[in-house]
């Protein structure tokens, strides 16, 4: 009775301590657990994989610094993918109400671009943050450059090569009539949301619904989502309704994307801690119920 009673009334602080250790230990000593792929993540990966070289892609980094441990790994993996495919990467932030103002996106894209050897303004641009949530999406749909006259670093957007496309001049047109079109993806100008071949919205709040309601519904931009694990179930109805092509959920999703990109990053390593905690919680629930039922039974026997 004594022990059971003690287990049942265990001080919550003991649980807190175990949680902390369960997270910390696998970070210091990695377990290298395997990663399996899911359809939802493939839904985003395949879309990007199938884009022709030079296609413009929009990445909405709609999360606050507090979510970055969970979402940065997937943003990194997606950026690596886009740069590997030589896409034109445009990042923006429409959501954080009290957040970073576009600096998360800037740091990540800068770092990944340096690794991939990409040039700002030509291969990628960070538009930064603008308030107004759906009004910004509508603005981007109507007139991209009017909504974002300058990028995050204050460069005039109209002058950047990335938005104007590498347009071939008239000469090549005359010799080979198809040539002006054949470089289609690379030559495409970006004037509106409609001009993007794909977008990925990485979010920790409901910004994806703003993108769906206004970006997809009004301007028909194809959307893939990456989100915190808690938001992931909320995106399934949209997936089923075919409003989005895939979901990358939390660190698990990030670890899968890392596997697709052939490396073990923060996502995969974080999954080790995850596994330990999940098992710990399940043990807690079992323990809680076991002691509860033993006590209940004793009560009925005595009664």
């Amino acid at each position: 009775m004594g022990i059971i009673q003690k287990v049942l009334n265990v001080d919550r602080r003991v649980i807190y301590l175990i949680v902390f250790l369960a997270v910390a230990i696998p970070i210091i000593f990695p377990l290298n657990l395997p990663v399996t792929l899911t359809e939802e993540v493939m839904g985003v990966y395949n879309e990007i994989e199938n884009l022709p070289e030079g296609s413009p892609i929009l990445i909405a980094v709609d999360y606050e610094p507090s979510s970055s441990p969970e979402l940065n790994p997937m943003t990194r993996a997606i950026l690596k993918h886009c740069f590997k495919k030589n896409l034109r990467v445009v990042t923006t932030t429409i959501w954080p109400t009290d957040g970073s103002g576009g600096s998360i996106a800037d740091k990540l894209v800068e770092e990944e671009a340096r690794i991939a050897g990409k040039i700002r303004g030509k291969d990628f641009v960070n538009l930064g943050f603008k308030t107004g949530s759906y009004a910004v999406v509508i603005g981007m749909g109507e007139d991209f450059k009017k909504t974002f006259p300058k990028d995050f670093n204050g460069n005039v957007l109209d002058k950047l090569e990335i938005l104007n496309g590498t347009h071939s001049n008239g000469n090549s047109e005359s010799s080979l009539p198809n040539a002006a079109f054949s470089q289609d993806a690379r030559a495409k100008k970006i004037n509106s949301l409609k001009d993007f071949s794909y977008m990925v919205c990485i979010h920790d709040d409901s910004s994806v619904f703003t993108w769906i309601t206004y970006g997809y519904e009004r301007y028909g931009i194809k959307i893939g989502t990456g989100c915190t694990a808690v938001m992931a179930p909320g995106n399934y109805p949209s997936l089923q309704a075919k409003q989005i092509t895939g979901i990358i959920g939390g660190l698990k999703g990030a670890s899968e994307y890392e596997k697709l990109m052939n490396y073990r990053g923060e996502g995969a390593r974080g999954m080790d801690s995850q596994s330990v905690i999940h098992v710990f919680i399940i043990i807690l629930i079992f323990l809680g119920n076991l002691t509860y039922f033993i006590l209940e039974r004793k009560k009925t026997v005595r009664g």
């Binding site: 949680v19 910390a24 970055s68 441990p69 808690v230 992931a232 923060e266 999940h278």
Partner: peptide, 19 residues
């Protein structure tokens, strides 16, 4: 299901701080 799924996201945050 929603509870079970959320655990993962929250633990990620502790991972971030511990890291």
């Amino acid at each position: 299901a929603s509870f079970g799924y959320t655990v993962m996201g929250r633990v990620s945050l502790v991972i971030g701080r511990v890291r």
